[in-house]
Each structure stands twice: as C-alpha cells, then as structure tokens.
Simulated scan of single mutants.
Amino acid sequence: MTSIYYIQVEDRNSMDGNRSNTLAGLKNNFAGEKEVLVFSNHATEITEKYAQSGVKTTIYQNDAYTIANFDAVLTKLKQIFRSKTDYLLVFDNDSLGSSLGSRIAALLDITFVADAKKITETPNLTVTQDIGATSAKRVIPLAKQAVITFSCNGVAANEPAKVDVSSWSLNEQTKQQYRQAKTAGNGLAFAKVVLAGGKGLGSQQQFKPLMKLAQKLNASVGATKAVTDLGWLSPERMIGISNLTVKPDVYYAFGISGAVQHTSGMNKSKQVIAVNTDPEAPIFKLANYGIVGDANKVISQLNDLL
C-alpha cells in the first residue's frame, strides 16, 4: 500500500507553512500508512503538538533554518525519497506548498498534481481535482511515486504519536532569511478565519495561547491598535481604520471592547464571535454570538477541546 508523507515547514519567525487542520483532514481521509516530515528551527517547542497528532512524525532540526531555505529542504527530500518506490508526498495547497511540491516533483522526475481535493485508495490511488470554477470534478490516477498539494480540513484529535528529532545540514553557501512583507500580515487581510486579541488579554504572554489556537483553527491572528502600540504584536497585524480591513467568514474577538477605530476594520465579517468580561462592551452589538467571560479562559478551554 502506498505510504503518504505530509511535508511541513516550521519557522519560529513565521506563521506560514504550518497547517494542523490539513494534517487532521489527511488523517481522516486516508487509511494507509502516514508520516509527517517537518523541517524546523525550534523542534523543542513543536514536539508536543506533533506528539498529539496521532501521526508518526520526524522533525529535521537546524537552528539556522528559515522558511526561505528551499534548496536545503529539497536536497534533504531528494535524499530521503530517491531510493523509495511507492509513496505520495503531500504539501499544503498554498503558494509555499505549491512551490516546494512542484520543485521536488521535478527533481525526482515524478507526477505532480496541484489542488487535490480528495484522496481515494481503492482500487488504486487517485485524487479528485476541481475543474475551474465549475461543479465538475476530474479524477486523476496516481503513479506509485507522486506529489500533490492537498486542500482538506479536519478537526484535530489528541492522539499519541511517536516523534523523532533528527539534526540536518543546510549545506548552503549563502544564508537566506524570511522577511515578512510590511503590509501582508501573513495573509491576514485574506484569511477565512481571524482570531483578534485586544488589550483585555492582559499581556503579551497571553497571546501565545491565542497563536496556538490559530494554528489549530488554520486561522490568522490580528489585534487592536492598543495591542500593537504596546508592542505585544507587530503593527502589521493591527485591524482597524488606520491599517487593515478584514472580511473573514468567522471573526473571533477576544478581550476587545469594540471601539469604532477597530470595528471599522472588521464589521463586514460574516460571523462575529465576541468574548469580553463587560456585558455592555460595544463589540457585542456586532456579535452573532457573545460570551460574557474571561477571554483567556475561553482560549484555554478551546485549546484543550481541539
């Protein structure tokens, strides 16, 4: 049976390249043998997450690694798979995954399929792909060696998994760096799900659980002007009249009172879920669902639940 390898990149300085929901979807949609291969510069911090994913994981650790080290990742993948005969490499269906996936397919001289929606194992391994903007589907049979970018969400379950950490060499002559675009907000302006934190969270430290929750929900993290003025998050993540306007499917407002300077940047969200200790907070007037309570406790409970 074909083995699936899901490729992840984890740079502590970037939220890009990490899709825990895709892993959950892959796990639920494919019954065969699975393994996650992670390229990282902070293995110690992410080991616990993968140890609860239910899928065997190998983390390739190098302190000097950044998300920009494409060549190093490709060289290592080529070393791993050049002698294997029956495998499917899966990358996230985004610009980063497409770039890495197409390049390793070319290096290994194997099939590459972009934007796969479904994996079917019987009688042979196939993937389903949308045809343009229509409702029609294309079913593509895969060879014994193939690469795809995969689009599928699932709810992560806390199940134990073996995690091995292995050091690896970048073997590159020039040191590359990931540099976030000043206005990009790591895709915040185009995110389907946004978790926004306000001064009500209490401290910069309290944004770490919010970041963890965002990874589980495949979401982007935003903030109010008060938060970015304090330096708790970078200014590029400020949502409001003086920076970003967002229109996600779901907008979570944690510890945000709802000043007009902020709400003018998110009031076109399809669904708003607000958590605040003040029942009279203006944000509740925009909310489809509201919780009167401690935002930090709610974030912690959601992290435990997911």
Rank of each mutant, 00 (worst) to 15 (best):
F70Y: 13
L96C: 06
N62Y: 02
N69P: 10
F91C: 08
L107I: 09
D109E: 14
Y87M: 00
I80S: 06
K76C: 05
A72C: 04
I67F: 15
T75V: 13
Q61I: 11
L107G: 05
L88P: 01
I110M: 00
F81Y: 02
A106I: 08
K84E: 05
S83Y: 14
G101F: 02
S98C: 12
L96Q: 04
K84W: 05
Y65V: 10
A105N: 02
S83I: 12
N69D: 15
A72F: 04
I80Q: 07
D86W: 05
R103M: 12
S95E: 14
K78I: 09
A72V: 08
N62Q: 06
S102L: 11
S95C: 12
A106D: 11
I67S: 12
G101Q: 03
L88M: 00
T75P: 04
A64T: 10
A106F: 05
A72S: 08
L74M: 09
I104K: 04
A72E: 02
D63A: 15
D109G: 02
L107V: 10
S95A: 15
R82N: 15
D86E: 11
Y65S: 05
Y87G: 01
S98E: 14
A105K: 02
Y65K: 09
S95R: 13
A68D: 06
I110S: 00
L96M: 06
